[in-house]
Design a protein around this nucleic acid. Structure first.
Length: 581
RNA sequence: GCGGGUGUAGCUCAGUGGUAGAGCGUCACGUUGCCAACGUGAAUGUCGUCGGUUCAAAUCCGAUCACCCGCUCCA
């Protein structure tokens, strides 16, 4: 029984085999490579295409049966990588996710600046020198903090009254994502405990603050995310050194380019960081032209681009990668049912690729790590050699609510509402009022998004297939499920004479019309088997003396290395059957 | 971004200042009777790149790039 635990597989050896056998090459290698990019060789391309085709077939052409016993309906799409830049403003990718990073000079710990809280010691005049638009909402920081500190002196009831009357404060408090909201809520609360409650700090944030709180602070420490000042009273949660933060650096996570020959701010465009937005952009087109009705899905496979801070771990995190995403549109009140359905459906799908159950798991996201768009999210994780005994993300199934369509409705001024006629009819039959019927049948759909990394899928199948075996000549073989193997069969004359090559040639010519296969008469039979083991070819057909007299060939099984004889006329049917399994 | 490590033939690696090496693989020819058999022969390198020191650099120094490990990030 081969060892299937990725913890015992060496990433380095997998990378070496990938190069040696033409699965994955370093990109632009002859120029010294380029950080974060990889090229897929002939076998890697075949493997990737096999996974992609299977996903497309199982998602678009032959989708599963839904939880109600009805077949689900999903259509395909191939949207442009470059879209109107407003798309990324609406989606929140511009602005919201250019995470600034900051580092403690003392201990070299790197942090996301918005995960750092800065502690002020309470003198509004001091703070005044940072007078700038801290809030991003046109609120001058000097007067803002003066206001806040003035408020702090007042009894809670009085504070609340003033906030209610102050349009500026109200506005700041209106946006729950905004910085002033957190600050003000924290400051205006009556105690530290209350501040935590009021500011709705997550457990993680709380912990960081608690650590600061161990130091002598004023009664109401101000936790200001998103900004660093060299003299701003910061305290490293790691080494507890004071005031040693560097200026936050802007990390631009989207690739930029210019549409048109002249580079200027007006024609700046972005390479998409996810395929999903292309689907949302065409949601209306699909509804209007494809006779789809709720619930339904739109699927897309394609390249995406992210300027990862640290591309690492082979093709696991590269800056150019490929996604297989499906956006499932449904009525809001049906969304938990579909979230649950797709969560389990996607896990089944990965298992159907031959990935061991023991190497896969679900991981539900904590509330405080959810993305801006997401209500619920679960990752399907795989135990990669470089994460083992831990796991790393392979696919995310996110409940995106109506976030994206609402955003696009707001930004584009195009109606994204769906009128659900089935619900209308149902309402009429139930004798509901017109208003009630409208309320139930008019809605912006909710979206469940199973988004998997195709290139991560390649990595998983490579890892999963990689099987060291000291007992065989190649010392290792790639145990792909036959359906996904880049080469399905080898055809070998046992020796290159006595009419065997001619028979092998004939068999090969027939098979190649249907299967990716290779004819090989060179060198010893053992070498040929060994080569096929490393390429992961599941079956090898060998023409020997008996073929010439009895019309049978041997089939050599990659995994067991055992042989059986079958009639040469049955080879195609044999492969057909094995590929279907 | 930081710290550590590595970089020599397709792969694995030896080579600590004096002519660029081995094993495996690849290719050709011969052989072959089911698991990298054997014989003969062949191709393959700006020693990651750039610069410096030196009569002389794969080797010493500096910079840079890529990969690996750890930290960190990953919408």
């Amino acid at each position: 029984m081969p060892d299937i635990d990725p913890a015992n597989k060496s990433m380095e050896e997998i990378v070496a085999l990938c190069k040696r056998r033409g699965f994955v090459y370093p990109a632009s290698e002859i120029y010294g490579g380029i950080n974060g990019f990889w090229d897929y060789g002939p076998l890697g391309t075949a493997l990737k295409n096999n996974i992609r085709d299977h996903w497309w077939k199982q998602t678009v052409e032959c989708p599963p049966i839904g939880p109600d016993g009805e077949p689900v309906s999903i259509v395909g799409l191939d949207s442009s990588i470059i879209q109107n830049p407003k798309v990324w403003e609406a989606s929140g990718h511009v602005g919201g996710f250019n995470d600034p990073m900051t580092m403690y000079k003392e201990c070299k710990k790197l942090l996301r600046a918005d995960h750092v809280w800065y502690v002020f010691y309470g003198n509004p005049d001091e703070i005044g020198k940072y007078g700038e638009d801290l809030t991003g909402q046109g609120v001058d920081v000097r007067s803002f903090f003066s206001d806040v500190f003035a408020l702090e002196q007042l009894p809670p009831d009085e504070r609340q009254r003033i906030i209610n009357e102050d349009a500026n404060l109200k506005q700041a408090l209106g946006n729950t994502e905004s910085l002033p909201f957190l600050i003000k809520k924290a400051v205006l609360a009556g105690s530290k405990e209350e501040a935590f409650e009021a500011a709705e700090f997550s457990s993680k944030q709380r912990k960081a603050i608690e650590k600061h709180g161990a130091k002598p602070l004023t009664t109401y420490p101000l936790m200001v995310p998103d900004r660093a000042w060299d003299d701003g009273g910061s305290l490293c949660p790691n080494c507890e050194s004071r005031d040693s933060l560097t200026e936050p650096r802007q990390f631009n996570l989207m690739f930029e380019s210019y549409a048109g020959a002249i580079q200027s701010a007006e024609n700046k465009v972005y390479l998409r960081p996810e395929t999903a937005q292309g689907i949302f952009l065409n949601y209306k087109n699909v509804v209007d032209t494809m006779r789809v009705k709720m619930p339904f899905g739109i699927a897309q496979v394609g390249k995406s681009f992210r300027n990862e801070v640290t591309p690492r771990n082979f093709i696991f995190r590269s800056r150019e990668f490929e996604q297989m995403e499906m956006e499932w549109f449904c009525a809001p009140d049906d969304s938990p049912k579909w979230y649950d359905f797709w969560k389990h459906e996607r896990m089944r799908w990965w298992e159907s690729l031959g990935v061991s159950k023991s190497n896969l798991r679900f991981r539900d996201h904590d509330e405080d790590e959810l993305a801006h768009y997401s209500k619920m999210c679960v990752d399907i994780e795989y135990k990669y050699p470089f994460t083992a005994p831990g796991y790393g993300e392979l696919e995310g199934v996110a409940h995106r609510g109506c976030y994206d369509l609402t955003q696009h409705q707001t930004h584009s001024k195009q109606k994204m509402e769906y009128f659900d006629q089935e619900r209308q009819v149902k309402g009429q039959k139930a004798g509901l009022s017109k208003d009630e019927i409208n309320a139930q049948s008019k809605y912006i759909p909710n979206v469940i998004e199973p988004a998997s990394g195709l290139t991560r899928g390649v990595l998983v199948l490579l890892t999963e297939a990689y099987t060291p075996d000291e007992s065989r000549a190649s010392k290792v073989y790639m145990k792909f499920k036959p359906k996904f193997a880049p080469i399905k069969a080898g055809v070998f004359p046992l020796v290159n004479k006595d009419g065997m090559p001619e028979v092998a040639q004939k068999l090969y010519m027939g098979l190649r019309e249907k299967f990716a296969c290779q004819l090989d008469a060179k060198q010893s039979i053992g070498k040929r088997y060994a080569r096929m083991d490393e390429a992961g070819t599941p079956y090898c057909f060998t023409i020997d003396g008996e073929t010439l007299t009895g019309g049978t060939v041997t089939v050599r099984d990659r995994d067991s290395q055992s042989q059986e004889r079958i009639n040469i006329d049955k080879v195609e049917a044999f492969l057909d059957e094995k590929m279907g399994e």
